[in-house]
Simulated assay, not measured.
Amino acid sequence: MGDVVYRCVIATSRAVFRGLGLRIELRGEEHLPTTGGAVLASNHVSFLDFLLVGLVGVERGRLVRFLAKESVFRPPLLGWAMRRMRHVSVDRAHGTAALRQAVRAAEAGEVVGIFPEATFSRNESLRPFRRGAAAVAVWDQVPLVPVVVWGGQDVLAVRGRWFRLRWGVAVTVVVGEPLRPGPHADPAVVTDVLRARIGDLLRDREAARDRQPLLTR
């Protein structure tokens, strides 16, 4: 049932993206393994990032189980869908429980999606990273795959209780080569390397915009 809901959400979101005329460029998706556990770690600029980063999994035949703040699960319909899709609720006051769920998911061969900044960055400057993504990769010995997403903040702009949609926006999703920390690696050190790698991808994202849009293939 959960995967049926997830696939319906994917189909609906892609139809909406087409209707909005989004020019989505996805590059480097081959860096996500097609089998086995993995962690996708991305910068975070908009509410659409879950759907956009999730496209990396879609292209590789995977479903990404994201960690999302607990408030996302409160609205009845959205909360029902999030739970059916097996996303993980994060209570920031008790984040260890969510981290344990992420560890179990990756250990079971799932792709776990984490936004290490834990909130939106309103510009290209990355916020400090939390160590959860690196910790899951170290504990489970799975690839830690850096991702950069950019453009979603221009599609859906939120101002208080109001939001505004824009058509024809260029969106970039770039996947970098995975980090493969050893079993005794320090998650703090791995987090620093991850942040530097995502920063490099963020600065280089312009190179991806010259390619054909994903959703018009």
Score class of each variant (00 low, 15 high):
119 T>L: 12
121 S>R: 05
121 S>E: 11
121 S>M: 03
122 R>W: 10
122 R>T: 07
122 R>D: 14
123 N>I: 03
123 N>W: 04
123 N>H: 04
123 N>P: 05
124 E>N: 02
124 E>M: 04
124 E>I: 08
124 E>R: 00
124 E>H: 07
125 S>H: 10
125 S>M: 11
125 S>R: 02
125 S>P: 02
125 S>F: 09
125 S>D: 15
126 L>A: 05
126 L>P: 03
126 L>F: 03
126 L>I: 00
126 L>V: 00
127 R>W: 05
127 R>F: 06
127 R>S: 10
128 P>A: 07
128 P>M: 01
129 F>N: 00
129 F>H: 04
129 F>K: 02
129 F>M: 00
131 R>M: 05
131 R>L: 02
132 G>P: 03
132 G>S: 09
132 G>E: 05
132 G>T: 04
133 A>Q: 00
133 A>D: 01
134 A>L: 05
135 A>C: 06
135 A>Q: 03
135 A>Y: 06
136 V>G: 02
136 V>R: 06
136 V>Q: 03
137 A>V: 01
137 A>C: 06
137 A>W: 06
137 A>K: 01
138 V>N: 12
138 V>W: 06
139 W>F: 10
139 W>R: 08
139 W>K: 10
140 D>R: 07
140 D>N: 08
140 D>T: 00
141 Q>M: 09
141 Q>A: 15
143 P>W: 05
143 P>K: 07
143 P>E: 09
144 L>K: 00
144 L>C: 05
144 L>S: 03
144 L>G: 05
145 V>R: 01
145 V>W: 08
146 P>L: 07
146 P>D: 13
147 V>T: 02
148 V>H: 03
148 V>Q: 10
149 V>N: 12
149 V>I: 13
149 V>K: 10
149 V>T: 11
149 V>M: 14
150 W>N: 05
150 W>C: 09
151 G>S: 10
151 G>R: 02
151 G>I: 02
152 G>Q: 08
152 G>L: 10
152 G>K: 05
152 G>S: 12
152 G>I: 03
153 Q>K: 06
154 D>F: 07
154 D>L: 10
154 D>M: 05
154 D>Y: 07
155 V>M: 15
155 V>R: 11
155 V>F: 14
155 V>N: 14
155 V>T: 09
155 V>Y: 14
156 L>F: 08
156 L>Q: 04
157 A>L: 11
157 A>P: 00
157 A>V: 01
158 V>D: 14
158 V>L: 15
158 V>T: 11
158 V>R: 12
158 V>I: 12
158 V>G: 15
158 V>P: 13
159 R>K: 12
159 R>D: 15
160 G>L: 11
160 G>I: 06
161 R>W: 10
164 R>E: 15
164 R>I: 05
164 R>V: 05
164 R>S: 14
164 R>D: 15
165 L>W: 02
165 L>G: 06
165 L>K: 04
166 R>E: 11
167 W>Q: 10
167 W>T: 04
167 W>D: 04
167 W>Y: 08
168 G>A: 09
168 G>I: 01
168 G>C: 09
169 V>L: 13
169 V>D: 12
169 V>Q: 14
169 V>N: 11
170 A>G: 02
171 V>N: 11
171 V>C: 14
172 T>I: 04
172 T>S: 15
173 V>H: 09
173 V>P: 07
173 V>M: 12
173 V>L: 14
174 V>E: 12
174 V>D: 12
175 V>A: 09
175 V>E: 07
175 V>N: 09
176 G>C: 08
176 G>F: 04
176 G>H: 01
